[in-house]
Simulated scan of single mutants.
Amino acid sequence: MTTASNPVPLSVLDLSPVSEGSTTAQALHNTVDLARRTEGWGYRRYWVAEHHFVAVASSSPAVLIGAIAAATSTIRVGAAAVQLGHNTAAGVVEAFGTLDALYPGRIDLGLGRSGQRRAEALAAARSGAAEEESHRATEVRDGLVIPPPYQPGPLLSSPRLAAGFAALQQPGAQAPDFDGQVDDILALLDGTYRTEDGIELHASPGEGADVELWVFGTSAGPSASLAGRLGLPFGANYHVSPGTTVEAVEAYRAAFRPSRFLDRPYVVVSADAVVADDDATARDLAATYGHWTHSIRSGHGAVPYPDPATSAPLSDEERSLVDDRLITQFVGAPATVAERLESLRRVTGADELVVTSVTHRHEDRLRSYELLAREWGLAALRAA
């Protein structure tokens, strides 16, 4: 595919997955290696996620971002996203202010809800408000598969997940209002922060930091509206919630107001992709993606990424829990995946796409990103 038909950049989202039989240390070394390689292949950004108490190594985004930024020189590095339910606004600004001081002009600070979203989803599940949406038929719009929305109520009520949330907060603490935390972060970065008593506080490092602020969301809910109202760029998670991504993007654009950050909406949309030299090889490499996703949605947390050579197929019952994720994973030869990514770009109007690829072997993941970069024409796009 030519850059003429694909004018948007590609970026990387890395969860630092731990493969079955490997270690967290190896996963972190793999992340740094992948960052170096994707910088050379022309990807615009390298983002890491925040996950806890599971078999991924990205539990401390700021620390990991520092290691990645030190190992690279031009690619933007950031978090997608810092979960504000587990962090204070001051702590986030000081951490990312430190990163910006060391690696100026290269740091992205993505913000996401965690404890807040869990409470809202549990309330919706108890009221039955989301039940009707879950029965919506799967739609194919201009080549993009849009399944019924996944309802996370059962997952978010799992005792294991509740224990994890509790362990990440001080005893008795409640996740604060997301909008208020974002306002505090903006004020701390600008140097205008005041306590309720009118006391000035100045973050050092942090105040004046040249970080690029993002808001991430999975639905047409508070995050999309907030990003629009503040005129911030928005990240929509097709790889997590493919049934609600289009609505999320539409809600963001409807709420958008020009700001000192942007004069028009800017959207990045994520996709899970596995690319190989041919479709059959890619399908083999992606054969245990459903197992891994099932471990998450069944409440057990992400297990070490299973080896396709030794894993039995999913049962029909297991597959039904993750079918929306399987039919929306982009798997195939470079042209196959590029065509599906182009559909995602057209339907959402994305200004940028961020790709997450997970395979059992690190070399297969490297090859996936390399083949996609070549097919998308990233080197030519970067030079343009």
Rank of each mutant, 00 (worst) to 15 (best):
P149N: 14
A384Q: 13
A25G: 13
T356W: 00
I185Q: 04
R160I: 02
A335E: 15
V82L: 14
R126K: 15
S58R: 10
S259R: 10
A287S: 15
N87F: 07
A312H: 06
A27W: 02
A276S: 14
I185D: 03
A379M: 06
T98S: 14
A312C: 05
P148D: 02
H202A: 13
I68W: 08
G349I: 02
L34R: 09
L102C: 12
A338V: 13
E352T: 11
T244Q: 15
G243M: 03
P313T: 13
T244K: 11
D33T: 15
A373H: 01
R44D: 03
L188S: 08
E342C: 04
S343N: 13
V18C: 10
P222L: 07
A167E: 12
P154W: 11
D316I: 09
A137R: 09
I296N: 10
G164S: 11
A373M: 04
S73A: 13
R160M: 06
G217V: 04
I185L: 05
W47L: 14
P9W: 13
S73M: 08
S368H: 06
D307Y: 08
L344Y: 06
V182C: 02
V48M: 06
R160G: 01
G97R: 08
R257Q: 15
Q26E: 15
G110R: 04
L111V: 08
Q170A: 15
P147M: 12
P222I: 04
G91L: 00
D277H: 13
A119K: 12
A81Q: 01
L122H: 05
G91D: 12
A282W: 01
T24Q: 11
G221R: 04
L381A: 15
T293L: 13
W376D: 13
R37Y: 10
V92K: 02
G301A: 09
F178Q: 01
V54E: 08
V249E: 00
V240S: 14
S298W: 08
A35W: 08
A220N: 09
A162T: 14
F330I: 06
A338E: 05
A163M: 06
L34V: 04
A286Q: 09
T328W: 01
V269D: 00
I199F: 03
Q329C: 10
S5M: 09
A251E: 14
A162Q: 12
G228F: 09
S134D: 07
V92I: 14
G42N: 05
I68N: 06
L341G: 00
S259Y: 11
D190T: 08
A67Y: 11
A373Y: 00
L156C: 00
D142I: 01
E318G: 07
L109D: 01
